[in-house]
Structures are given as structure tokens and as C-alpha cells.
Design a protein around this nucleic acid. Structure first.
Length: 405
DNA sequence: ATTCCACAGGAACACCCGGTCA
DNA sequence: TGACCGGGTGTTCCTGTGGAAT
């Protein structure tokens, strides 16, 4: 390790084109999208009018994480832009991740700034300082000025605080004469099939003109997906069992192709790090643990410190509980208060706030909760379960804490 | 079917920060 | 500059509720 050149010699042992394994990589050839022919056709039918400059249908897509919803939407939006440009129709696509931009205000600002061209329109979409309604007006002006058709992709729509208002404003833009010449189409993407229930009648009827489901991939399809991207690696670097192993691990959950790709990429990185000639099955298993940990760290790093203390309390309790006994949130609070003073020498937050943090951790899909009633005179409580192994959770919490200091 | 309780979670508010715009 | 604006953290006060025991 003393020799600087060693750092770079290692870089090319395993990978040829690692970009193919980035999760947001959108293939440019539809043959590389596995098992989604009917979904692609359905999307294309919905968007078809936009090619002629007409208003595309609004579409709602359901499907669990890693079933190709975003990939297919991005791919089809890209096809649409090029097909329309042959007819001299200018199509703008705005992809908004509602997990990151979870309020109506953030969504409209994000949407505005992606379709905007400030040099032409002289509009800006600052994160604060301007009211939401002013941002809508600016967005309408940008649309009319720059595009014949705009397609808004609202990914992770179920993660929005209040999807109704934004959906109403967007879907009714034309009827309310907010936009004159430009046509606006919405592609909504949701992880939860029950999402429709949260919508009011107007939002539902306008968004759900067409809706369809992306089913989970089976292990065979995930294998094909990984094989379709094996150009990321040099020839003969992947040992025979590697792709099936990664596919099996991902399929065990619920057919999450994103996870499979993550695992495969990480396995490659680990092989490379130890200067191995090939990627072995052992790398895949280690990569699975690593990706779980990385994901936790990434999510938790953005949470307030006390959220991590609360989570660590959950993990510690989960660890010391005998298998079938569930963790109660009041127990979590007790341990949390103890940890705060003993380990972090910081004042514990109110019980109410702790419940909010638990709610947030549930939203982030780190824990799962279920409400229970304990019986007459015993009150009700909330059962909390970790979604990952407690050791990994504790490790991730500690890693962030020691990283910060 | 009713009763009971501790806990769940909604509402309102206070405070701070970083930003815009006339 | 000072009036707005959105958003995050955190509090207090309060009403809603699951389900075993009655």
C-alpha cells in the first residue's frame, strides 16, 4: 500500500463499464429491459397522443421497489421526446422523486427547475422565499413558453405528505386555464397498491385514467437482468455461481432488481478491493450485508441524532428479546432515556416526540409497527419490529456517531 | 356488547434557519 | 432593510382506540 501506483493498478481488475450497474442507469435498448413488454406497451399507449402534440393520458403505476417502474418510465419518456421531435413537437419531461421532495411546494419547485431554462424564461424556482402559488405560476409560464407537451413523472408518489393538492393543481391546470398552449400529462408511480385510497375523488379520477401493475421479478428474470448487464465486468471475471446467487438473494425478498444490481456491483467492488481475479459467491454474500449496512447509514445520516438513539434502543431491545416477544414503544422510550443520559450525555426528548421519531423510522422502512390492544384495563400499545438484523442496525448507528466525531 | 386503560397520534404553537423580493 | 415564505425540530394539550376481561 506504500506505493501510490498500486491504488490505480487495482481499478481495472474486475470492471469494464461500471456505469451499467448504477441503479439509475437507463438502458438505451429496450431489449435490455427484461420481462416488461406489456408494461412498456401500456405506457406507450398512454403517452401516444403527446407525439402529435396532444394531451397524454395520466397514468398511475403500482409495483414494489425494484420492479422497473422508474426505469420503464424514464425509458419511455426518453423515447417520447425523440419520437415527438420528429414531428416538431417539443416535449419536456420532469422527473420528480417525491421521497426527496415530499411536500407540494418542493414538488412544484423541483418540477419547475428541471423543465426551466433560465436564460430563455428568466424564471427561478428558489427553495424558499417565494410562495407555493407563485411557483405554480412560474411553472405554468415556463411550460407555455418552452414546450408543446410536458410529462411529469411523480416517482414514489405515496411518499408525499399530501398528494391530493399537488395532483389536483397539476391535473386541472389546463381546465383552470393556468396553461394556455402547453399540454400536461402525469405519470404517477406508487409502491403501495392501496395508495389510491388516500386520494380524493377528483385526484383519483384524473390520475387513474389508466393504471397498471408492475409485478415482482422472479429469480429467472433477475438472472436475465444481471446477465444483460454483465458487460459491466471484464470477460470471465464472474464465476458461474455469482449471478444466480445474487439473483437468489434478491428474489428471496420480493424480486427487487435494484437490490440485485446493488449486490452485484458491491460484490465486484469487494473483489476489486482485494485485487481478486474473479468475483466469487463469497463476495456476493458479503456484499449483501454491506449493501444493507450502506443503505442504513445513508438513510440514518440524514436523520436527527435522537432518531438514531431511538432506533438503537429498538435494536438493542430486539436483540435481547426472546424470539417471539415483540418490542413495545414504551419500552423503547425507557431504554432511549437511559441511553441518552448514559451514553450520549444529552437530554432525552419528550415521549410524544419519540413516538414521532418511531413513526418516521417506520416511514423510512427501517422498522415495522403494528398497533395492539393489551386487554381490559391494560391499554393499547405499538409492536415494533426491525426490518434488518439488529447487529447491522446497531453497527450502522454507531458508525455514523463515530464518523461525526 | 360493554368497559377499561395506556398508549397512539392529531392540532396548535414556539422557535430557528436560510432564503426571496420590493 | 424588513416583511414574507417554507421547513425542521420540539413542546403541550387533547381526543381516539384495540381487544381481553367483564
Amino acid at each position: 500500500m506504500g506505493d501510490i501506483s498500486n491504488y490505480f493498478e487495482g481499478v481495472t481488475t474486475v470492471f469494464r463499464n461500471k456505469d451499467l450497474l448504477q441503479i439509475d442507469h437507463v438502458p438505451d435498448n429496450e431489449r435490455l429491459i427484461i420481462g416488461r413488454e406489456s408494461q412498456l406497451n401500456a405506457l406507450a399507449t398512454g403517452l401516444q397522443p403527446a407525439v402529435e402534440g396532444q394531451k397524454p393520458n395520466n397514468v398511475l403505476i403500482y409495483g414494489k421497489t425494484g420492479t422497473g417502474k422508474s426505469l420503464c418510465s424514464k425509458f419511455m419518456a426518453r423515447q417520447l421526446v425523440s419520437a415527438a421531435s420528429e414531428n416538431d413537437v417539443s416535449v419536456g419531461v420532469a422527473y420528480v422523486d417525491c421521497f426527496q421532495d415530499s411536500t407540494e411546494s418542493q414538488v412544484i419547485r423541483s418540477l419547475g427547475s428541471t423543465i426551466n431554462d433560465q436564460e430563455v424564461t428568466d424564471e427561478t424556482f428558489p427553495a424558499s422565499g417565494v410562495s407555493t402559488s407563485e411557483c405554480y405560476k412560474r411553472a405554468w409560464r415556463v411550460m407555455d413558453e418552452l414546450y408543446d407537451v410536458v410529462v411529469v413523472v411523480l416517482d414514489e408518489l405515496d411518499k408525499m405528505d399530501d398528494p391530493n393538492s399537488a395532483l389536483m393543481n397539476l391535473s386541472r391546470a389546463a381546465e383552470a386555464e393556468k396553461i394556455q398552449s402547453c399540454k400536461l400529462g402525469i405519470i404517477g408511480i406508487s409502491n403501495k397498491p392501496r395508495f389510491k385510497d388516500r386520494l380524493n375523488e377528483r385526484a383519483r379520477s384524473s390520475l387513474c385514467q389508466r393504471d397498471f401493475v408492475f409485478p415482482p421479478y422472479d429469480a429467472d428474470q433477475i438472472e436475465q437482468i444481471l446477465e444483460a448487464r454483465d458487460g459491466a465486468f471484464k470477460d470471465d471475471v464472474l464465476e458461474p455461481g455469482v449471478i444466480p446467487r445474487a439473483a437468489a438473494l434478491a428474489a428471496r425478498e420480493h424480486g427487487d432488481a435494484r437490490k440485485a444490481i446493488d449486490i452485484l456491483r458491491t460484490a465486484g467492488e469487494m473483489a476489486q478491493e482485494e485485487q481478486a481475479e474473479t468475483v466469487r459467491e463469497g463476495h456476493v454474500d458479503a456484499a449483501q450485508v454491506q449493501t444493507e449496512r450502506d443503505h442504513l447509514i445513508e438513510v440514518l445520516a440524514e436523520q436527527p441524532p435522537h432518531s438514531r438513539y431511538v432506533l438503537k434502543s429498538v435494536a438493542l431491545l430486539d436483540q435481547r428479546m426472546s424470539d417471539d416477544r415483540a418490542v413495545k414503544s414504551s419500552d423503547v422510550n425507557q431504554l432511549y432515556r437511559q441511553i441518552c443520559t448514559e451514553q450520549y450525555s444529552s437530554d432525552p426528548l419528550s415521549w410524544r416526540r419519540v413516538r414521532d421519531l418511531l413513526h418516521e423510522l417506520e416511514f423510512l422502512e427501517i422498522i415495522e409497527r403494528k398497533r395492539k390492544g393489551a386487554g381490559r384495563g391494560e391499554g393499547g400499545y405499538m409492536e415494533t419490529h426491525l426490518l434488518d438484523a439488529p447487529e447491522i442496525v446497531i453497527d450502522a448507528c454507531d458508525a455514523i456517531e463515530s464518523d461525526a466525531h
